[in-house]
């Protein structure tokens, strides 16, 4: 239990640094956008960015093996038809089964 309560000060400095840069990325967006004017292309790009970020986040992991790719496709199919928690649980069950089969 004592070990669980130990605080590593070098690590704490890294955490503080990480916290600061992360907070700056969070407040930086509205700050930047207030100072830059956007044309239609830039607006369309900005609008599509969230989806593109999500795709980039999941693509390497989702396509890492056939079982995961199939389960990911399954989640995409049901995602708009059932509540999110149902889709997530169904996806996890599917990936466990598919990993055993494939």
């Amino acid at each position: 239990m004592l070990e669980a309560l130990r605080l590593d000060w070098d690590l704490f400095a890294v955490v503080l640094g990480g916290a600061l840069v992360t907070w700056m990325t969070r407040i930086g967006g509205p700050w930047l956008i207030a100072r830059v004017r956007l044309g239609p292309a830039a607006n369309a790009a900005l609008e599509a960015t969230p989806g593109a970020v999500l795709v980039a986040l999941v693509a390497p992991a989702a396509l890492s093996r056939p079982s995961d790719a199939l389960a990911a496709a399954f989640v995409c199919l049901i995602a708009r038809r059932v509540p999110m928690v149902v889709a997530v649980v169904a996806g996890v069950v599917a990936v466990v089964l598919l990993r055993r089969l494939l």
């Binding site: 990325t25 407040i27 967006g29 509205p30 900005l46 960015t49 969230p50 970020v53």
Partner: peptide, 8 residues
């Protein structure tokens, strides 16, 4: 990516 999200 937060920069782009925050901008929207």
């Amino acid at each position: 990516r937060h920069l782009l999200m925050g901008a929207t």
